[in-house]
Amino acid sequence: MLIPMILIGMFIFIMFFFTLMRWNSSNRRMNYQDVWGRKALYLAKGGTQLALLKVSMMPTECYDALAISQLKNPYFSFKIAAERVAAGKKPVNPNPKEIDFNPGPQYLTGPGDNRDALLQDPAYVGTKEDPLSGELNVFIKAFTDDIKFAGPDTDPITGERTVPYKHGFASTKVKVLAVKGQQLYNKQTVELTVKGWVYDGMNIKREKEVTKIVEVERK
C-alpha cells in the first residue's frame, strides 16, 4: 500500500517541480533576452538619428544616390517633366530658351535597354538578403557606410566598440518606396533601416532593427 502511494506522491511532486523549473527558466531567459534586446534597440535608434542627420545635411547627395539606384538621371527635373506631360508635351525639353527647359536623359538606360528588367536583376539591385549588394547601389552604400560609431575607441572596420560591452550599429537597407508610373517631383520616399547589435554575457549577438520612412528632396 505504501509503495504505490509514495510513487504517486513523488510523480505529482516531480511534475510540479519540473513545471515550476521550466516556467522559471523560461521567464529568466525572456528577461535576459529582453534586456539585451533593448540595448540593441536603442543602439539602432541612435544609429537612425545619425542617418537622419546625414540625410538632412546632405539631401542632394542622398537623392542622387537613390536616383542612380533607380537608373534615373539625378539632374533631370521630374517636376518639370510632370508639368510638361500634363500639358500634353514630352517630358524632356532640350531647348534652353524655353521656360520649362528640362534637358535629358530622363533615365540612364540606352535605347536598347529595358529599365524594368534591369531593375529586377539582382546583379544591379541586390538580393533580398543583401539589398545593398547590387551594382546600382554603390552610391547608396557609400552614403550609408559611415552610419556607424567613429572615434579612437572604435574598430574602424566593424564600427564596434567593446566598452561597456561589444556593440555597434550599421545601416542595412535603403529601399526606395516608389511604384511604377508614380510621379516623384524630385523627391524620393525611402525606407531607411538601421540595425543595432550587442554581444551579451554569453557572447551571443543580439540584434534589433529600426526602420524610418523619410522623404529626400534634391536641393
Binding site: 539625378p74 517630358p91 524632356v92 534637358p103 538606360t109 535605347p111
Partner: peptide, 12 residues
C-alpha cells in the same frame, strides 16, 4: 551626365 540635345528619354 552630359545634357542631351534630343528630346529622348533614354541616354545617348
Amino acid at each position: 551626365i552630359k545634357r542631351q540635345s534630343s528630346d529622348s528619354e533614354n541616354a545617348d
